[in-house]
Amino acid sequence: MSATDMNAKSGFLLSLVQRSDAARGYLLLSPALLAAAGTLVVPLCILLAYSFWTQNDLSVERSWVLRNYRDFFANVTYLGILAKSVAVSLAATALVLVLSYPVAAFIALKGGRHKTMLLLVITIPFWTSYLLRVFAWKIILGYNGVINSGLIGLGIIHQPLEILLYNPYAVVITLTHAWAPFALLPIYISIEKIDRSLIEAARDLGDGAWHTFRRVVLPLSRPGLIAAGMLVFIPTVGDYVTPQLVGGTSGLMIGNVVQSMFGRANNWPMGAAISIVTMVVVTIIACAALWGTGGKPGQARQ
């Protein structure tokens, strides 16, 4: 390619960038897109590839087999743990949504001038270390922890309660606490967007507060609820920190299994396969939830 050809080509590109908004946009995006491709798309594809390979003691054999998947689905314990993880996440998600919704609604509808401050107050704990927030529950629920020593000190019980910690319920409680602020924001945003005059119209037409809520506010805030649900459910299924700190053996979740595959058990392909299965299950549930809640017609009537 001669110099003049190069000049012509770069001249063309330069004028294209000068003239076309879309070309400029893509040029600006290219670093982030490249980074995303390299650090997200490629690794996930390789992860997928790994799930079809097998671990032979010290090395990885790169023949394409379904053995990992077969082994996983044949293993009742693993399946049980996966089911439990999904159940724990769903429980935590449900709790988060139910507990956070009234607060989000309060701030959106009655917050007035203090809205931003209230939101800030609620989201600040979220910005501190996740590890620390989980650890805090460990010291609350522990054998010698805050609740037990407090109750003993008050004379309500004489022996520490052992049922508080190291079980799936502790995991659910901890997850609920840790993720609550994160879920509150999408719900708040969707309630905030509701046209006030719709609510006033409902009241004008005779609905009491509860009916107004059920027929106007709740349906219109559905997108926020769905978004919040996704934002909590999807990441928590794979969580291993919380189960490890407060779950004990009965609270073990699929994340711990995966982690052990990359740790002591040293079976990376198996770990990859389990992660893929988990992601697929989560995606299926998420899609089912979207489809299930999106199908119903809106119930806001004026």
Binding site: P43, L44, L47, M230, I234, G238, G255, Q259, S275, M279
Partner: peptide, 10 residues
């Protein structure tokens, strides 16, 4: 949206 553990191992 991707679970941290999946990102990490990938």
């Amino acid at each position: 949206l991707i679970p941290g553990i999946v990102m990490g191992i990938a």
